[in-house]
Structure formats: structure tokens, C-alpha cells
Nucleic acid binder design. Sequence first.
DNA 1: GTCTATAAAGGGATAGAC
DNA 2: GTCTATCCCTTTATAGAC
Lengths: 208, 208
Amino acid sequence: MDNTLAMIEGEGRQRILAAAEKLFSAKAFDAVSMNAIACEAGISKANIYHYFPNKDTLYLAVLRVASHNLRAVLNEAVSAHGSVLDVLRHFARNHLQALLNRPQLVRLVWREILERGAPRAQEFAEQGFADMFSALVDVLKLGQSRGEFRQDFDPALVATLLLGANVFFFQSRDILRHYPPITFADDPAGYDAGIVEILLRGLVPASS
Amino acid sequence: MDNTLAMIEGEGRQRILAAAEKLFSAKAFDAVSMNAIACEAGISKANIYHYFPNKDTLYLAVLRVASHNLRAVLNEAVSAHGSVLDVLRHFARNHLQALLNRPQLVRLVWREILERGAPRAQEFAEQGFADMFSALVDVLKLGQSRGEFRQDFDPALVATLLLGANVFFFQSRDILRHYPPITFADDPAGYDAGIVEILLRGLVPASS
DNA sequence: GTCTATAAAGGGATAGAC
DNA sequence: GTCTATCCCTTTATAGAC
């Protein structure tokens, strides 16, 4: 079996998937026409149907690849070594940075989470969530078992809080930027550093 | 001027707006047809064009009303009296409860925030954001000025963290529910109580 | 104000040549 | 594998009677 042949055979499919990913990332399912995808891919509309039986299948294929890639990017970003505190700080910062580095993938997957009550979204989205939650919960539990953290908080709750802070930042960055008292809209690293410090030390003075 | 007449005159328009709001809340702009709106409103499709020149204008009218209502609901929910800590706790809980009470409004406005890079979204969305941020930042600043909170954190950052936690909970509740270590997916009050306690006391033991 | 009927355009999908 | 041409349906929007 010749590799070159396999690559050529897959080339058309790849072009379509890339074009579809780009367009589906920018607009919702119904707002993207097969015609637009064909134009973006530089092929004819009918040719798409040689590779995919219908629009829905194409969309699902795009979503499958995208969520897989996003998951890999995120998992890669948050892997770290060092003390519990260092790992936590790096997790927060790198997770957010990974989101900001791949805005299209995030938008694509996240829209699926928000729009569809359908079961297919969950399949992909939950994987990414589960990875992040597991990693983060493990870090927090380790901190607890070592006595570096309190024992009386729920690690899953803190994980939700931290992931939510990053997702919210990613989603509403443009709005945050236009709101005067906010100075960190263009400083994601500073944002996460501030958040982690607050989480660690709390709002109430230590003397209390 | 007779009130009844005014109400009858506005009735058709109201029926259309209500139907459109319901459908636009459930699906994206391009996924909702004028035909579907007409059916939902129980009138003919052509009749819609007597009140609105085109689909885009109708959508914008829906968005305008929805964001106004959502803003009122949220502002109402978070108004509270008492000690700084009580106000903070009530803010968190009531804000999230208000989101959960009006899921359609939240979805409608929030989709607009996420989808459009367009300027019109900002106009509405920023108002709601500004209200919440202002109220929350004021509470935090008051706590700081009274010495009940540390001086060395950014109130806007904590406000973002808290609002983000609630929005994230609202958005990903279905996913959270299916993830084993999470026990608070159906307990928003407990979720916010836990979050606020963590924020106040921090993760690190007080002895450190 | 409300309707039926229809126009004009674009959508997804297919047929069949090459 | 890729294309052009086409089918059929739905879409937005309009015309015009009542």
C-alpha cells in the first residue's frame, strides 16, 4: 500500500473538513450552506456528497475531529510538574491560554454544548470536561492530602469554579474589555494569577 | 385615547413578539423560519410583515425586549440589604436563581453575545453586564472599606469570578450532572454557598 | 389588519457525463 | 473523483383581495 496514494485519496476529504470546520466555527449549523463550504474548499458542491452522505454527517465529522483536537490541546496544556501550588497556577494559566489559542475549536464545541439538547453533543463535550475536571480535582485532592489545603471544601466545586472562570473569560472577553473597572481583559495570565491568589488566600483577612 | 383600543392595536404585535421570542430562544436565527413564527403565533406569515419590515428587524425587536426584561429580572434579584457578607451571599444565590428561572431569556441574550461579533449585541448585553458588575463591585468595595475584606484584591476580578461561576453553572449544568464527583448540579443554592465560603476563607488553612 | 397566492432566490441533494 | 446541470423543496418577502 502506497502512502502517497492514501494521502491523495484523503486530500479531498481533508479539504472539505477544514473548510467546514472554519465555517461551522464562525456560524451556526443552519447559517452555513453546503455551497459556502464548497467555495471555501475550492471544489464543487456535488463533490462534497461523494465524501459525506449529507450535511448532518459532515457536521458531525467536523465536530468529532474538532473535539478530539481540542481535548488533546487542553490535556497537553495542563500537564505540569512541581509543587501543588505550582501545578495549580500553571493549570489555570495554561488552560486559559489554550482556549485563547484555539478560539475556533472552542467556539465550535461550546456552541454544540449550548444549542443542542441532543445527545450527540454530550458524547464529545463530556470527554473534554471529564479530562479537565479529573486533572484539576486530582491536584486539589493531593493538596488536601498533603495538608497544604483545607480539608473542608469540595474539590469538584473548586474545579468548577476555576474552569468556569476561564470559560467565562474566554466567552465574554470583548464585553469585559469595554467595562472601565476591568483592567485584565487583555492580560489572561494576570487574570488567572489573581484568581488563584484569591482562591488560595480568600477575601477575608487572615487574622479573622 | 382609549386604552382598550391601544391594547387591541398592540395585540397582534405582542403575539408575534412572544412567538418569536420562544422560537429564537430555542434555536439560532437561521434555524427559525418566519413560517414557524407565524404558526406559533397563530397568524399568517404575511401578517408578520405588516408589523415588521423583515426578519432581521423582528429578531432585533425580540432581542431588545428580552434583554430589557432579563436586565430587570436580574437587577431585581440581586437587590438586598444587610451586612456585607449577607449581601454577597444573597447576591450570588439570587443571581443564579434568576438565571435558572428565565432560561429562555438567558439563552437568547447569551447566544447573541457568543455568535455575533456585530456591534448590536454589545449594546444590549453590556447593559446587563454593567449592572451586575457595578452592584457586585460596590459590595466588594464596601467590604474593603469597612475592613471586612482584604485591601489587596481587585474587586472587578472577584466580580468576574463570581458572575462567571454562575453563568458557567447555568450553561453546563447538564454536563456537570453526568459527572460523578459533582454533587451540586441540582443544588444551585448549595453551589453558590460553597463558592462564597471558598472565596471568603480561601483554600489554604488560616494557620499558614 | 388579515388573508391567499405568488414571486424570486437559495437551500439540500441527485443524475449522469467525463 | 470531480464536474455541470438539474430537481424539488423551503425560504424570505411582496402583491393584492377582503
